[in-house]
Structure formats: structure tokens, C-alpha cells
Amino acid sequence: MVVDVRRNRVGEVMASAGGREWEAFPCDVRPATASDELRVKVTEVNDRGRRERGMA
């Protein structure tokens, strides 16, 4: 997992050439910390909860 510091996004490196979700220059990424990964998980849980409440 890495953080794209230019976009403040956390993601998994898929390939060094071309990207699926978004592309970032190597100079714009750093290894993700445990805090970064937790932030992503909390956001995913919150988003899922909002979608479920919207369907009820």
C-alpha cells in the first residue's frame, strides 16, 4: 500500500507502467502507514453504511 501524496489517496501498486485506477509518478508516492490504511478502512465502512441506509 502506498499514499499518492499529490492526490492524498491510498492505494495498492498494481504495476510500474500503466494503471488501473489512477496513475502516479514514483516521486509522488510513499509507503502507507498503519494510520493511512485505517483511514481507508473507516471510509469504506462509513460509505457502505450510508449506502445501506439509503436502500432501506
Rank of each mutant, 00 (worst) to 15 (best):
R7S: 02
V29P: 03
V3N: 01
C27I: 11
S16C: 08
G11F: 11
G54Y: 02
R7K: 06
M1W: 01
D36M: 06
V5S: 04
A17C: 13
M14F: 07
G18D: 11
D4L: 04
N46M: 05
L38F: 09
E21M: 06
V29L: 15
D28P: 12
R48P: 02
R39W: 04
R6K: 12
T33H: 13
G19W: 09
N46S: 04
R50V: 06
G49L: 13
T43K: 02
G19I: 11
G49M: 10
N8M: 07
E12H: 06
S35N: 05
E23V: 15
S16T: 11
P31D: 11
R9Y: 07
V10E: 01
P26L: 15
R7L: 11
K41M: 02
P26D: 14
V42E: 02
V40P: 01
R48W: 07
G11W: 10
P31T: 08
R20V: 15
P31C: 10
T43V: 00
V40S: 04
D36W: 10
V2A: 06
M55D: 13
R39T: 05
V40D: 01
V42T: 04
D36G: 03
P26C: 14
E44C: 01
G54W: 09
E23N: 13
K41F: 04
A17N: 14
W22C: 06
E23G: 15
P31I: 10
M1C: 00
E23M: 14
V29W: 12
A24G: 09
L38W: 07
M14Q: 11
R20A: 07
A56M: 12
A15T: 07
M1N: 03
V5T: 10
D36L: 08
V40K: 04
D28H: 15
V45G: 00
E37I: 09
S35W: 11
E12K: 05
K41E: 06
V40H: 05
R7C: 00
R51G: 02
F25N: 12
M55W: 13
S35P: 00
M14D: 02
G18H: 06
V5N: 08
E21G: 13
V40W: 03
M14R: 11
A17P: 05
S35C: 08
V42G: 00
D47G: 01
V40L: 13
D36V: 08
T43D: 03
G49P: 00
E37N: 07
T33Y: 11
L38I: 03
R30H: 04
N46C: 01
G18N: 09
E12I: 09
E44W: 03
G19A: 15
K41P: 00
V10S: 03
S16G: 14
G11Y: 07
A32V: 03
M14T: 13
F25L: 14
V45Q: 05
C27W: 09
G19S: 12
E23Q: 14
A17L: 14
M1D: 01
D47E: 09
G18S: 13
V29E: 03
G18P: 08
R9D: 01
R30V: 15
R39Y: 07
M14W: 07
N8T: 01
V29N: 08
E12T: 12
M55Y: 12
A15V: 01
M1E: 07
